[in-house]
Amino acid sequence: MKKYLALYKPFLLFLGTFFLTYALLAFLYQLFLDGFEKGKVDSITRLVAQNTETVLSWFHKSVFIKEDSKEPFFTLYYQQKGLVRIVEGCNGVSLIILFISFIAAFSGSLKNTLLFIFGGSLLIYVLNVVRIAILIILIYYFPGKTHLLHGVLFPLVIYGLVFILWIVWVNKFSKYAK
């Protein structure tokens, strides 16, 4: 048994660090969400909705968000038409937690790890806002393609970015990069 533990130590350390980091960050995020009144939108989702509204307003002035009075979501209106609901799952935090957990599990120097986590998280956040904005425009012009756009194409884009960031991290900055 000791032989196998020694043989698979790097893999077991990776798994342990990944799951511990993921569990801790998910727990902290849930505590954050629990701090909001039932039926109210959390501040991160609010920021994502506001930023999406701002990005869309650069291209068209007839854009606004409206918070639902009973449920925790925003409806985003584009060209006077309520097109999408922005809910907690749209804010990208769960994906950022996944990203951070992987980077921590394949950590490099403390400075590089923290900088990559910060830069990667910011990039994921910005791309997520732009992704939602583009999705809204495409849904407006192609309402029959909503499932393809929201359920297939755009998750592919955001998860693809995270995968590319992971590859860059492992090959350039992690302690395994050599």
Results as ranks from 00 to 15, higher is better:
residue 42 D to S: 09
residue 69 S to T: 13
residue 75 T to V: 15
residue 50 Q to F: 14
residue 60 H to R: 13
residue 67 E to C: 06
residue 64 F to R: 12
residue 100 I to D: 04
residue 73 F to E: 09
residue 89 G to W: 04
residue 86 I to W: 11
residue 49 A to P: 10
residue 97 I to Y: 07
residue 56 L to W: 05
residue 73 F to V: 12
residue 66 K to G: 02
residue 72 P to E: 06
residue 100 I to Y: 01
residue 84 V to C: 10
residue 57 S to G: 14
residue 86 I to G: 11
residue 40 K to Q: 10
residue 71 E to R: 14
residue 75 T to Y: 08
residue 71 E to D: 05
residue 80 Q to L: 02
residue 79 Q to M: 14
residue 50 Q to R: 15
residue 74 F to H: 02
residue 79 Q to W: 08
residue 64 F to D: 02
residue 100 I to W: 06
residue 68 D to S: 10
residue 50 Q to W: 14
residue 106 F to D: 06
residue 72 P to Q: 07
residue 78 Y to E: 10
residue 58 W to E: 05
residue 54 T to G: 11
residue 43 S to G: 03
residue 83 L to V: 00
residue 78 Y to C: 12
residue 90 C to M: 08
residue 50 Q to P: 05
residue 59 F to K: 09
residue 41 V to H: 00
residue 63 V to E: 04
residue 87 V to Y: 01
residue 49 A to Y: 06
residue 48 V to M: 08
residue 66 K to D: 06
residue 63 V to G: 04
residue 87 V to G: 00
residue 83 L to I: 05
residue 70 K to Q: 15
residue 72 P to D: 02
residue 77 Y to E: 12
residue 67 E to D: 02
residue 105 A to I: 08
residue 76 L to W: 00
residue 78 Y to L: 10
residue 48 V to T: 13
residue 93 V to L: 14
residue 104 A to P: 03
residue 90 C to D: 05
residue 58 W to N: 12
residue 57 S to T: 13
residue 53 E to M: 10
residue 58 W to Q: 10
residue 49 A to R: 07
residue 87 V to P: 00
residue 50 Q to M: 15
residue 75 T to A: 12
residue 45 T to M: 09
residue 104 A to E: 05
residue 104 A to C: 09
residue 97 I to R: 04
residue 49 A to C: 07
residue 43 S to Y: 04
residue 72 P to L: 01
residue 94 S to P: 04
residue 49 A to D: 03
residue 82 G to A: 06
residue 82 G to I: 03
residue 67 E to Q: 14
residue 62 S to Y: 15
residue 78 Y to G: 07
residue 61 K to H: 15
residue 73 F to N: 13
residue 60 H to K: 11
residue 94 S to N: 15
residue 77 Y to M: 09
residue 68 D to A: 13
residue 66 K to Y: 06
residue 74 F to V: 00
residue 98 L to C: 12
residue 96 I to C: 09
residue 63 V to K: 01
residue 57 S to R: 08
residue 92 G to M: 05
residue 78 Y to W: 10
residue 80 Q to E: 12
residue 92 G to I: 05
residue 59 F to T: 09
residue 78 Y to T: 04
residue 72 P to A: 03
residue 105 A to H: 01
residue 76 L to G: 01
residue 49 A to H: 08
residue 61 K to I: 07
residue 105 A to F: 02
residue 69 S to R: 11
residue 87 V to H: 00
residue 73 F to S: 10
residue 90 C to W: 01
residue 49 A to I: 02
residue 67 E to A: 09
residue 61 K to D: 14
residue 55 V to C: 07
residue 53 E to N: 10
residue 66 K to S: 14
residue 88 E to S: 09
residue 97 I to G: 00
residue 93 V to M: 13
